[in-house]
Amino acid sequence: MNPKIQLIGVKKHFGAKKVLDGVDLTIEKNSSLVVIGGSGTGKSVMIKCVLGILRPDEGTILVDGEDVTHLSGAARDKVMTKFGMLFQGGALFDSLLVWENVAFGLIQGRGMKRAEARDIAISKLAKVGLPEDVAYLSPSELSGGMQKRVGLARAIAANPEIIFFDEPTTGLDPIMADVINELIVSTVRDVGATALSITHDMVSARKISDRIAMLYGGKIIWQGPTGEIDRSGNPYVDQFIHGRADGPIRMAVKA
């Protein structure tokens, strides 16, 4: 047991709505954990709590055993250099060129020289299957799949120890989704990172994970190795992975 990230009793509410109601989760070093759950169950909120974008109301978040729950300012920036993140919509900076996006963490976060950072950016783009001429385009000139690839290149640019993937395959066609899945598996292995992904795409979840955990009602209701998800014996998990409208999970129509 060598935990990289630990969430202990993390709670977060917005107004009267309890989104996270005591999440306990451990992510082992160099493993790939996927958190599944329906839309609006707080998967994104959980990730944002770990990243410090949102502040949990209660509970503790440990990264490499260090309590990062209440860090801010320079201490927070320092912890953030361990992280890379692929956002759902890519979240590329549209005022910058593609290579400047990929090199952003190197230049702004670590103060690297631009020319040096550009070379690294171009090699990272090659890793996700993009040719050098793409580096000089603007993000708005790229298709959705290419934007995801650039986002992935940006996430791995600084060789992070931990990479988060927020719905990596949402909005992509099945073939491009599989390409992205394979890239995730190979890049995570290449940089030797610990990965935490959130998704509701079960094909993707099975492909990129060692372990799967399910978030429901603000808690982790099941977790185990990916191979055991079909034998979880948990009616909630069964309903979710088979995508059935009938079952113990009632979809709230009103948010």
Binding site: G52, A91, G105, F164
Partner: peptide
């Protein structure tokens, strides 16, 4: 500009790239 960056998560992305 900043509002669009906010709703497209670009501001969150800045944080994850160790930039305030």
């Amino acid at each position: 500009e900043i509002g669009t960056m906010k709703v497209t998560e670009q501001i969150d992305a800045l944080t994850t790239l160790a930039t305030n």
